[in-house]
Amino acid sequence: MGKFNILLVDDEAEFVESLAERLRLRGFDIAVASDGAGALALLREHRFQGVVLDVMMPGMDGLAVLREIKKGDDPPEVILLTGHARTEAALEGIQQGAFDYLIKPVDIDELSFRLQDACEKRALMLQQQ
């Protein structure tokens, strides 16, 4: 199946670097963006199967980035990650097409399982079309 390309978007530099490292150890190809604009720029240039998106970021917040991502053709699957869990925002994210919604501190195995599932789902959906 090859390696999955994943984009991590989070403004907490330390957090995102250690997360990237741990996901790489689990066999993912990881790119990192520190804000929404940076993420969208990367998404225009590269293909990703999955995006892990922090909900609360300065500037464009995670839900806005999600909306932008889902406007594109053949969008990647998005997993929302938050340190500030709110029911309304969580449901809005899911209704806008997020694959899942996880809460910090996130269990690294759980995140990597969800990413695998998300990427497999995307592959299946593509075959189906």
Partner: peptide, 17 residues
């Protein structure tokens, strides 16, 4: 309170899914 809020958010998201 953050425990209650985060668990409720998780619960609602999963039940909705």
């Amino acid at each position: 309170m953050s425990f209650i809020r985060s668990r409720c958010a998780l619960l609602f998201v999963n039940v909705y899914q």
